[in-house]
Amino acid sequence: MKHRSSNRRNFLRIGIAAGATALIAGGGNVLSALSVAESKETGEKMKLLTPEGKLVEVDKGHVCCQPAGNLEARQGLPDKKMVMVIDLAKCRNARKCLQGCQKMHFLPPHMEWIKFYLLRDSEEMSPYWFPKPCLHCNNPPCVKVCPVGATFKRTDGIVLIDNDRCIGCKFCMAACPYSSRVFNWEEPKMDKGVNKAAYSPETSSPPKIGTVSKCDFCPDMVRKGELPSCVTSCPNGVYYYGDKNEDAVTNGTDTVRFSELIESRAAYRYMEELGTEPSVYYLPAVDRAFNYEVGFEGLSDEEIALYKTEAKIKE
């Protein structure tokens, strides 16, 4: 029941917010964006602030919705610094974020850009669920080692992969301490429509055999002023996403000041000691909304057993 009611609340608030910011928010998936790529005028308006402080209203088609080209995608979105805050106290391993992500990026079921761990720091402590997308490090070990610059750090903090340039040496996969990267070991089985769509590093679609993929922080959605699918798919509002330069993050329902959130909830970055400076912040699992065992719902016995072994939980 909790799930349903939060959904309704989501709907109401999003409706109001969307109506106000951009008058009308368009249908939000990659396909719709691709389909309007041809026609420049979308009829949908969007407000922009000029550097001189004037508010102007422009057609969405002029500022977004065109998949960025390979070179254009190397530039970050101006003046942005995207960050994510993950509230571990609210995660119950529902995996809706992954489903949303896979749907949005047309990924096959086994290709997981978000991974779920049941962590337990020591045996005296209580296990907690730990969803992990790419952490988009500010000092990314993967970008350092790429021999051809196929993976790169943008000014807006996003680490992307140009699958047209990647030679598939997998060095970045070996270098990533967070196991965030996956490889296209065989020809990706795709819908014909997806394969025909123009490739953009910002949509990471269509994927290419023999190259590396990972969570891309959805810059194509940011261009449209929309939230990544993981954020909107989460029934519990675990993911907050936003622009650090604006000092605001939102989980689709609540919009809060980034600085206040990470201060009041004592946020931390995973394995800060590695010096990778991630863009993803975690809020510790205090005052949890769920018992960790709720997260076993719907999992196979083998997987539950594996999680229990990893978290050293004895029967």
């Binding site: 910011t21 002023g225 929309e226 996403y241 622009d243 604006e246 605001a248 939102t250 919009t255 000041r257």
Partner: peptide, 8 residues
């Protein structure tokens, strides 16, 4: 205050 994705 309008932000990229929502209103703060």
């Amino acid at each position: 205050v309008p932000r990229t994705f929502s209103l703060l």
